[in-house]
């Protein structure tokens, strides 16, 4: 009797093991975030006990000029970093994918991807030394937003190169030859054919490098100047001095913004994909019908 009930339990466990495992993984991934969102609505400073619902930390957030200032600085830095990284990364990717043979290619390839594996602390420290030396020599750049952007772009460019190169590699090269065949000079080929076709990867690279820059602490910490602090730096500073639920509120706003963006983007691409499939199917059906008609009349 006892063995049969334990066997039944075992069977139940086996049947639902996949779902259970999924639940555990989701909890592991999103549990902390849910916890954070919950406590951003806590009515007191307590971070272990939920004492009641309130939006006071959101109000406090709006009045906290350091957090708000940090947010706008991070936004500015991330937008510029994303743009610069994507432009430089696209050039680097183009050279790496399209010119398989030139002197120093493997060195260049190594140098482009080195920041991906280099510890950020070392990148930050070495950049700090470099910036200080350069500033000493030519009076520029002063440590602040500019130096942070330069540092982030170094890292971002490496990521952008990887993303754009992957798309360039899988792109059908014959459409570039077709463009040349139809009278395009090489530069026209790039802007009229290559660029529109790798655009999705440029958008992806921009979003990736934007995010990378927006939540970077290490490089910002090394390269920021007096009075210049990005949002992650402000949050770190607060966390070091004890709990401030305003940070939870800020984090919740960020999470909601990002997830809304991602969900909207996925819905849009999914719809476009479905429309494409439907159209392709309709075209094939039309062709079959026309063949059949031709056979019928012949």
């Amino acid at each position: 009797m006892k063995t049969s009930s334990s066997q039944a339990l075992l069977r139940l466990l086996q049947a639902h093991f996949g779902k259970l495992w999924l639940l555990v993984v989701y909890l592991f991934l999103y549990g902390p975030l849910l916890f954070l969102i919950l406590f951003s609505f806590n009515s007191t400073r307590q971070d272990a006990v939920f004492t009641g619902f309130s939006t006071r930390w959101y109000e406090a957030l709006l009045n906290d000029s350091r957090l708000v200032g940090g947010f706008f600085l991070s936004l500015k830095v991330a937008v510029i970093t994303g743009t610069l990284s994507t432009i430089l990364g696209t050039f680097a990717a183009f050279v790496l994918v399209r010119y398989q043979r030139f002197r120093g290619r493997s060195l260049f390839s190594g140098l482009v991807s080195a920041p991906l594996v280099m510890p950020e602390v070392i990148i930050g420290l070495s950049l700090l030394l470099l910036m200080v030396a350069v500033q000493h020599a030519i009076g520029w750049p002063e440590r602040g937003a500019t130096t942070i952007v330069l540092g982030h772009t170094l890292l971002g460019m490496a990521y952008a190169t990887v993303v754009v190169a992957a798309r360039l590699r899988e792109m059908d090269r014959t459409i570039e030859e077709a463009a040349m065949d139809l009278g395009c000079r090489p530069l026209q080929v790039f802007f009229l054919v290559t660029l529109p076709n790798i655009l999705p990867s440029l958008v992806a690279a921009w979003m990736l490098t934007f995010t990378l820059s927006f939540d970077d602490v290490v490089i910002s910490e090394f390269l920021s100047g007096p009075g210049v602090t990005t949002l992650p730096q402000v949050i770190f500073g607060y966390a070091r001095r004890g709990v401030n639920p305003s940070i939870y509120a800020a984090a919740t706003i960020l999470i909601l913004t990002v997830s809304t963006g991602i969900i909207a983007y996925s819905i849009l691409t999914m719809r476009a994909q479905r429309r494409r499939e439907r159209d392709a199917q309709a075209a094939v059906l039309a062709e079959i019908r026309s063949v059949e008609e031709n056979v019928g009349t012949a």
Partner: peptide, 17 residues
């Protein structure tokens, strides 16, 4: 290629997507 009075139809058609 862009200075030749020659045009080609590619095997994969190479239409601009």
């Amino acid at each position: 290629p862009y200075e030749r009075p020659i045009n080609m139809m590619f095997q994969s058609y190479a239409l601009f997507p």
